[in-house]
Amino acid sequence: MDILVILIPVSLFLGALGLVGFFWLLRKGQFDDPDGDANRILRDDYDDHPKQ
């Protein structure tokens, strides 16, 4: 069971990585307009002014 000493921190680290990633996306406004983003990619014209 010594392997747990490595595995538990590793799993916690990976989980935390996901959490930090989520925070980053949240702060970047990735969830502000999900429908719009889904549709924008289908447009023919090039998006000259992507949202900053």
Partner: peptide, 28 residues
């Protein structure tokens, strides 16, 4: 409701002199 509407609205708005930028939020 669709991608065409986004383009249509943004193009119409940006065609107005004095408008610097227009951004549609489809979700809202």
């Amino acid at each position: 409701h669709c991608a065409g509407c986004i383009s249509g609205v943004e193009r119409a708005l940006e065609g107005v002199a004095g408008v610097r930028a227009a951004r549609v939020n489809l979700t809202l």
